[in-house]
Computed example of a mutant assay.
Amino acid sequence: MKRFYLIGFLLLMGFDTLAQVSFKYAGNHAIPFAVSLEWVLSVFSQPWVYGAVIGYVGAFFTWMALLKHAPIGPAFAASHLEVVSVMLLSIWLFDEHLNTARVLGAIAIIAGIVCLGMAESREHVPEPAEA
Rank of each mutant, 00 (worst) to 15 (best):
E96D: 13
G8E: 08
G55R: 09
A26G: 04
V83F: 10
L116I: 09
P126A: 08
K68P: 01
I107E: 00
V114L: 11
W92G: 02
L88N: 05
V83N: 02
S121D: 13
F4L: 15
S90Y: 03
S22F: 09
H97K: 14
L88A: 14
V57Y: 06
G51N: 07
L11V: 07
V43A: 05
V83I: 11
M118K: 15
I31S: 10
P126L: 09
G58C: 04
F4I: 12
L104F: 11
V114W: 10
V84W: 00
D16Q: 15
V84Y: 02
S45K: 07
V40M: 07
L93T: 05
L88F: 12
I31Q: 13
A59H: 07
D16E: 15
F33Y: 14
Y56T: 12
I72V: 11
H69E: 05
L88W: 09
A26N: 03
T62E: 05
A59Q: 10
L11I: 11
L89H: 08
V35E: 09
L81M: 11
L116A: 10
F44G: 01
K68S: 06
L66I: 11
S36D: 07
A111V: 08
L6F: 14
H97A: 07
V49K: 02
I109E: 00
S45P: 04
E130M: 13
A65E: 11
